[in-house]
Simulated assay, not measured.
Amino acid sequence: MAGRIDYQIEKYSFTELNEPPHLTRQWAEVTEQCREVHAGVEERLRLALQNVDYVTSFELPFRLLLIRAPQLIASVRETLPVRQKNVIFNGKRFGCVYSLKTDLNAIPDAFQYRLSTRIRREDATGNSAAPFQQIAKDTKAPRDRLRTALESGLQVTVLDGMFWFGIQRMAADIQRLRKSGMRIATAETEVFDNLTGTLRRVPMYRLAG
C-alpha cells in the first residue's frame, strides 16, 4: 500500500466564467479561514454556507476538497436552513445550488467552471503525479481515466481522481466500473494537503487479483 500521501499544491485555480468579484473574495476568505483553523470536512462546508452567498454541488468538492458532499449537505441540513435550486454545469451536467438565503431567483441557472493546477504528489512507494498527469493528457472522459489508472496498476485516492481526472464522486464511478466487471479493492490511506492543512484518511482504490 502507498501509506501516507502528501499533496503539495503549488497552484490551484478553480474559477467560474462569470463569477462576480465579491463571490471570489468570499471564497478566498473561507479558504483562508479553513486553512487557519485546520477545519474538518463538515466545518469547511458550514463555513462556506455561512459566508458565501451560494455554493454549487459542482464546486464544493474542488473548492473545499470534500469527498462526500451530498452526505455532508444532508447532515448540515439538520441544523442550517439550506435551500436549493437546480442548475446546469458546463453546458451539460445537472446539479444544485445551495444557499442559506431565502430568495434564490438572482442566482444564475448555468455555470461554466475551469480547474487549473500544479500539484506535487509524494508517497512512500515513490509514485509521483506524473502517471496521473499522463493519463489525464491521453484520455478525455473522467471515468475512462479512472479505468486506465486502475488497469495500469495505480492505487488511486479520491484526491487523485479530483485533482487529475476531474472526478467529484469517485465512489459512484467505482460502482459503475464494478458493474462492468472490474474487480476493484478498496482501502484507506492517510493524506495531507497544504490547501486545507489537514491530515485525514480517505478511500483508495486498486485493481484486485
Rank of each mutant, 00 (worst) to 15 (best):
L146R: 08
A69N: 04
R77C: 07
T24E: 13
K140W: 06
N18Y: 09
P203M: 14
S75V: 04
D193A: 07
G161D: 01
D173H: 13
G3K: 11
I174M: 03
A106G: 07
L72K: 03
D109L: 12
Q8S: 11
I135Y: 06
Y113M: 05
P81Q: 10
L154F: 03
M204V: 15
T24N: 09
M182E: 14
E19W: 04
Y113N: 01
T125M: 12
R143W: 03
Q168S: 14
I9F: 14
I119H: 08
V30P: 13
A74V: 02
D138L: 10
R35T: 02
G40A: 09
T198C: 13
Q33G: 10
V156P: 05
A39F: 07
R206V: 00
E36T: 10
L72S: 12
V156K: 05
F62A: 10
K92E: 07
V191N: 04
V158T: 15
M170Q: 14
G161H: 04
R206M: 13
R114L: 06
R178H: 11
I174A: 02
L66Q: 03
T15W: 01
F58Q: 09
Q133C: 06
R121H: 13
G161W: 02
K92C: 00
D173G: 02
P108D: 10
D53C: 05
P21W: 11
R68M: 02
L195A: 15
L104R: 02
V87L: 11
G161S: 09
E188M: 12
G95K: 09
S128I: 02
Y12S: 15
S13Q: 11
Q33V: 06
S116M: 11
K92I: 05
I135G: 01
Q133W: 04
T139F: 04
K92P: 00
I184G: 14
E43Q: 10
K85N: 07
R35N: 12
G126Q: 08
G91N: 12
C34I: 14
E36A: 15
I9L: 15
V41H: 04
R143N: 02
R147G: 02
Q134Y: 03
L80A: 06
T24L: 15
M162I: 06
F132K: 09
W164Q: 01
N127E: 08
L115H: 07
L60A: 11
E43W: 00
Q133G: 01
E19C: 11
N18H: 11
R143T: 12
I119Y: 15
A39Y: 01
I9K: 15
L154N: 01
D138C: 03
F163D: 07
N127F: 00
A172F: 02
N86M: 10
Q133L: 14
C34M: 08
G181S: 07
R83G: 11
Y7C: 10
L66A: 07
A69P: 01
P21G: 09
E78Q: 13
G161C: 11
Q33C: 05
D173F: 09
D144H: 04
Q133M: 12
R118V: 15
R147F: 06
